[in-house]
C-alpha cells in the first residue's frame, strides 16, 4: 500500500491503545477520580453540616430573640405594676396623712372651743364676783341712793380697774 500503510500494524496500534485505555482506567484514572469525588463529597458534607449548624444557630438566635422580646414585655409589665403599687402606697399614705391632719385639726378646734368656753366661763365668774363685791361695798356705805351709787361704783370701779 502507498506510504507503507499496513492494516495489520494499524490493528496492532488499536490493540495497543485498547490495552493502554483499559490499563490507565484501572490503574490511574478511576482511582484518582474516585479520590477526587470522595474529597468533593467530604467537603460537600462539611458544607452541609456547616449550613445545618448555621440554620440551628439562626433558629436558636430567633428563639433567644423571642425570649428577649418576652422578657422585655415582662419587664415592662412588672415596671408598670410596681409603679401602680407605688402610686397606691403613696396615695394611701397621702390619705392617711390627710385623715391625720383632719383629725389633728378637729382636735385643735375642739380644744380651742373648749378653751374659749372655759375663758368665757372664767370671765363670767369674775364678773359675778366683781358684781358681788360691788354690791357688798354699796351695802356697806350709808346715805346714798343705793342704786345710783352702785352705778357710779361700777363705772368708777371699771375706770379704777382699767387704771
Amino acid at each position: 500500500m502507498p506510504l507503507n500503510i499496513d492494516p495489520q500494524q494499524i490493528l496492532l496500534h488499536w490493540m495497543n491503545l485498547a490495552i493502554l485505555i483499559g490499563g490507565l482506567y484501572l490503574l490511574l484514572y478511576k482511582p484518582v477520580k474516585q479520590f477526587m469525588e470522595k474529597r468533593e463529597a467530604h467537603y460537600k458534607d462539611l458544607d452541609a453540616q456547616a449550613a445545618e449548624k448555621l440554620a440551628q444557630a439562626e433558629q436558636f438566635k430567633a428563639q433567644c430573640q423571642a425570649k428577649l422580646d418576652g422578657a422585655d414585655e415582662e419587664i415592662r409589665q412588672a415596671r408598670a405594676k410596681a409603679q401602680q403599687t407605688a402610686q397606691q402606697a403613696a396615695q394611701e399614705q397621702l390619705d392617711q396623712a390627710e385623715a391625720q391632719a383632719q383629725h389633728i385639726l378637729a382636735k385643735a378646734r375642739t380644744e380651742a372651743e373648749q378653751s374659749r368656753e372655759r375663758a368665757l366661763r372664767e370671765s363670767q365668774r369674775e364678773m359675778r364676783e366683781l358684781a358681788a363685791k360691788a354690791a357688798k361695798k354699796l351695802a356697806a356705805q350709808p346715805g346714798a341712793d343705793l342704786f345710783d351709787r352702785f352705778l357710779d361704783l361700777t363705772e368708777g370701779g371699771g375706770q379704777h380697774e382699767g387704771r
Partner: peptide
Amino acid sequence: VNPGTISAFTVTAILLLAAACI
C-alpha cells in the same frame, strides 16, 4: 514491523508501569 509500532508498545509499557507504581 515499523519502529513506530515498537515505540508504541514501549510507550504503553512505560505508561502502564508508571501508572502501576503510582
